[in-house]
Write a protein that binds this DNA or RNA. Structure first.
Lengths: 236, 236
DNA sequence: ATTTGTGAAATTATTCACAGCT
DNA sequence: AGCTGTGAATAATTTCACAAAT
């Protein structure tokens, strides 16, 4: 199973069950590890020299923190054609990655939870530059309702459904405490949201067809602690 | 290589190179995937009934979102002994997990970046409850210097080294913009910090022996977008 | 009667290495 | 000569399935 994804929506069937899966094009779902690296490749593309119109698997892989064989395998899964002896066209590759990742669409994001974390995310440039636009913010703290966060009015939490509908939100970011998370997610799902990024430190359950990805900060710092102790990065 | 870890410090040698790696006890470094799940098991333990003194691999795995075989394999890597026909002792298992993950130590955490994200993390209860204590906060925004964040005074960024030394910080959390990240990390490393959790959206380079774990929020939302599109969770 | 611990099998992911194109 | 695309080889991880323990 998928370690960070909490629904079955990401665990997919092979659409060409038998042998001939050569150059799968956009039909097969890519492995999660590959998708993770695709985001790195996209970011690494920003680092290539402005004048450079082409980039080698070697060069890009280094910037992205992998090796060239992995990169070529990854790209070949999307049916990409670089040019032998030359490399990959930078512009084309960026488009391919953006299309594959679904960043060419408009994602209308509903933010639930307007605390420090929510505010940090609402202001994060890395979202807006890739098609993610916040269309609504709610919080159940009355002190926050009415405040403005990056041009958006904070509404009361009982408006979730209305706002999702009005702005046709197709993605939600949840930054509420663990105790509130399941309830909030239920409401979002009920309102029709099928894609949720949750920062709450609990596992939530959702119906089939809904994907929840979780960012678990506590887990990350715990894993850091483990490798520090096990790997000798612990002083005294 | 390790997808989320940016130094070699987490990629370790097998300490018993040849065959007999049965019941590895605390000597071998665990696979990253196992460590990730250990954090889930620890969290799932909080969900077991107060009166329940023992838990089965089946029950705990379900709460943690895996299957029982994986859980038993994971625990067996730490040389654990549950009791056949009975299960695992809840209290003992929690201790084992905390010890293994290094959560029984005191982690003195230096926070660099006191923006919304930094403040959110400084106030996050999930840290303090597992041995992570913030000992200093710096920011290079003069407006923030002198402010208090959860009992800590925000200092100017040029105090990094002094504060790390004074409080013997052994872990740092970095929430600065990408452009500042490498510089900040260099200073932390120079000051002796060997374990860094970075939220900056860039890859940083560090000397061998220093571990950087990165939490990349942009990546997570992009991956969510991919699975939404590829998996049919995209309306219209 | 349960439930662990673990070899063996199956599956998945990564890396090698080189033929084939430019 | 340089660099991709990809089968084949290797490595890592997960799952099966059952003997051993209580």
């Amino acid at each position: 199973m998928n370690p960070d994804s909490e629904s079955d929506a990401a665990a997919h069937l092979e659409l060409f069950p038998s042998g001939h899966s050569t150059a799968a094009s956009a039909n097969t779902v890519l492995p999660e590890a590959t998708v993770r690296r695709l985001t790195s490749y996209l970011r690494a593309l920003d680092l290539v020299n402005e004048e450079q119109t082409t980039v080698s698997s070697q060069g890009l892989a280094e910037a992205a923190g992998t090796n060239s064989a992995t990169l070529r395998k990854d790209l070949s899964l999307m049916g990409t054609y670089g040019r032998r002896g030359v490399g990959y066209d930078v512009k084309l590759l960026r488009e391919l990655l953006e299309n594959t990742l679904g960043l060419n669409r408009e994602w209308r994001v509903m933010l639930v939870g307007a605390g420090n974390l929510g505010r940090a995310l609402a202001g994060y440039a890395g979202f807006s530059s890739h098609g993610f636009r916040f269309v609504g913010v709610v919080d159940n703290n009355p002190d926050l309702v009415g405040m403005k966060i990056h041009d958006l009015d904070v509404s009361s939490s009982d408006k979730i459904s209305a706002i999702v509908t009005e702005h046709r939100a197709n993605l939600a970011v949840v930054t509420v405490p663990g105790a509130a998370a399941q309830h909030v997610v239920d409401e979002l799902v009920e309102a029709g949201v099928r894609n949720i990024l949750s920062f709450a430190p609990v596992r939530v359950t959702v119906p089939a067809g809904v994907t929840v990805r979780r960012v678990d900060v506590a887990r990350e710092i715990q894993m850091l602690a483990y490798f520090a102790v096990a790997g000798g990065g612990m002083d005294k």
